[in-house]
Amino acid sequence: MPSPEHRPDRTLDTLGTYCPIPVLRTARMLAQMNGGQILELLSDDRGVLADIPDWCRGHGHEYLGCREEARLYRLYIRKV
């Protein structure tokens, strides 16, 4: 679970898009960010709950967790 100190440096809204778009846009956004910065990803694609942690592990980024509000997911990633 992301803690309150995980304040995002950038927010990426991918609502209404589905695989592979959220992962592609996450990769593109993180590429523009600096190491240590935190990205907040907004999505309503339930698949991201599995894919983003997997993608982070493969690419060496730190997945900080997810907050769920109704069917809106907020995922937090720290660029390593």
């Binding site: 695989c19 592979p20 992962v23 339930r46 698949g47 599995a50 894919d51 942690p53 997997d54 993608w55 982070c56 592990r57 493969g58 690419h59």
Partner: peptide, 12 residues
């Protein structure tokens, strides 16, 4: 589980 991208799983 049926929504997971299996390729990303393998990478992880």
């Amino acid at each position: 589980e049926r929504l997971r991208n299996p390729a990303l799983r393998v990478g992880a």
